[in-house]
Amino acid sequence: MVSTSADTARDAAAIFIARMDAGDWSATDEAELQAWLAEDPLRQGLLLRMQAHWIALAPATAEEELPLEDEDDAAESGASSGWGRRAALAGLAASVVGVFGAVRWSEGPAAYATRVGEIRRLPLSDGSVMTINSGSNLTVAMAQQSRQVELTQGEAWFEVAKDTRRPFVVAAGKVRVRAVGTAFSVRRRETGVEVQVTEGVVETWSDGDRSLRMRLAAGDRVMISAHAVIDYETDISSSVDRSLAWRSGMIDLNGRSLANAAEEFNRYNARQIIIADPRIAQEELDGLFRINDPAGFAEAVKTSLGVSVDSSDADVIRIK
């Protein structure tokens, strides 16, 4: 076979994949790979596809779902029992893909805050990743037997690395949300705490009232307070995804009221939208907007609802 540039590219991709497979990927390796990728935009796809083929070549992969049964015991028996399985823990740790340095393993709590308009993606020491939405405050405490996040304000989306021995618990006031390996968001609102699940299963309850305990699956959303389940919707994956559009810097309205949409934009921007005419506040809107573009949104409202927009003030946009 005549060697072509396509073959050369495949060989090079294979070298990178073999090296990534070795598990001691360095900054130099990454820089080399980035330089190689930059030479041809199609190489991203080549690399991904070949890496996927390599990963797919396994009758049973190491990424199998861990059984959820274990976590039930853990929750019932509290934090003290059921954790005497260090040997298993070590094995599990070895299978975790990477470990990151934002928070070291057994260090004390670390606090994070985002400003209005800031969305921050942050890897945690256990391999989980949290994406913190605008204007939020939280602390993270990683211990040998538990992973705890306290959300004091705002919202965050968690992609939890699987580790059945260390439950991942988010506390928002008295409300608790627990996961093993899954992805979900928690948002503190005035009326309660909103939990949305994008992957896997999570459990929620209130610290004062265990009877409120619920199990949520991907595509579920619940609004709970310390004392009651206020609202529960199931099987609404697309709606959950839309309300988490902020992860990619977008707001997806999809039939939300103008009042609600304005509130959403105001969450991210110093320049606030004010709806001066209550009669139009309940008009429903559709569309995908950039989170940091309230003016663009106001323009779209002007055209679609035929209202007037006053943007002469640098601090506010008035829709009337």
């Binding site: 990534m20 598990g23 990927w25 360095s26 900054a27 390796d29 990454e30 991904l48 596809r49 890496q51 996927a52 990963i55 992969t61 990424e63 740790a93 070895a94 975790v96 893909v97 990477g98 470990v99 990151f100 340095g101 393993w105 890897p123 391999g127 990743v129």
Partner: peptide, 23 residues
């Protein structure tokens, strides 16, 4: 693997591997 991984490249690698595993 726990020690010494402090870096952005570890995160990039993990993300890349997550997507490839998904694919």
């Amino acid at each position: 693997m726990r020690e010494g991984k402090t870096s952005a490249e570890a995160e990039i690698l993990a993300r890349r591997r997550r997507i490839a595993t998904w694919v």
